[in-house]
Design a protein around this nucleic acid. Structure first.
Lengths: 148, 148
DNA sequence: CTTGACCCTACCATGATGTCAAGGTTCATG
DNA sequence: CATGAACCTTGACATCATGGTAGGGTCAAG
């Protein structure tokens, strides 16, 4: 199969199919005499696996690990489950962070009249001193450089 | 003030302070004879505003809009509120998407024994045909859909 | 003068994806 | 056969926010 047909069959863009090959998620397919990639039917399965995992928010590294387990018929399902549950935890933390942002925003907006007057607690809140003024500072403001 | 002091005062890295200048969020400050950036105290306020907005997940474009309204003493608070509420909605949708992913993942993991046996519904679910019209990827193996 | 902290610009990298460019191949049709 | 559409190829650039590095200038104190 040509790349265009694989793309249609899987819903993965040609661009990303080549990309996955480049980063090692897909094995390099055979080439025909004209240089065209020639995919075996198995590739479709594997691409769908990758795309589904991506849709679930797995990182490339996680997908690589899952593919390795997929290829290994002897693997223990506990390994797969550990990756999946770890990722679920990761997703939960991200969702909670977004929710906290939203909460803060709604709290700020609550005090805002939302009319034609210029007074606005949202802007006032944004201009306030930052809650965590202890972020990373680039350059060595207080760290000794021990470089040769 | 030198950039290092502004960085310390705001918790924004020097790297990002220069970046915000490059993308137009911060006005280019005066330069001393030696080429060093020389910031007025106002810059600290503005940087804090930017950093706070960024922490709330606003995009650069949204921050630019908020800054414009911040600079405008005549603006109506309704404009600010509209941006804020729109963004809150955006955050809610993102959080919901993450939660849906997590739900799917947990559903898949539920059927997984998580022991030494190779049988694993998580991998089976990932290898399934991609949801094209509507998704039914949760739970056990569904009927394989044939689509070209 | 030396040292070390500070500043400058400019480039590279991330991750997933899109787009565009410039060129080769295949095939159908006039 | 010639032309053009539709396909394939590689490579490069852009996004967004951030970190890092390289290479070099500046300043103040010892």
């Amino acid at each position: 199969m040509n790349i265009g047909q694989v793309s249609k069959a899987t819903g993965v863009s040609q661009r990303m199919i080549r990309h996955y090959e480049g980063i090692g998620l897909m094995p390099p397919p055979d080439r025909r005499d004209n240089g065209y990639r020639d995919y075996p039917p198995r590739s479709i399965e594997r691409l769908r696996f990758i795309a589904n995992a991506r849709d679930l928010g797995f990182s490339v590294d996680e997908i690589a690990a899952l593919l390795g387990l997929w290829d290994d018929r002897e693997r223990a399902s506990s390994e797969v489950k550990a990756i999946a549950l770890g990722h679920a935890e990761h997703l939960a933390r991200k969702a909670a962070a977004l929710e906290a942002m939203r909460r803060t925003l709604l709290d700020l907006a609550e005090g805002c009249s939302g009319d034609a007057r210029p007074d606005c607690p949202i802007l006032a809140g944004l201009a306030e001193t930052r809650p965590h003024p202890d972020r990373e500072l680039t350059g060595a403001s207080c760290k000794p450089k021990e470089e040769a």
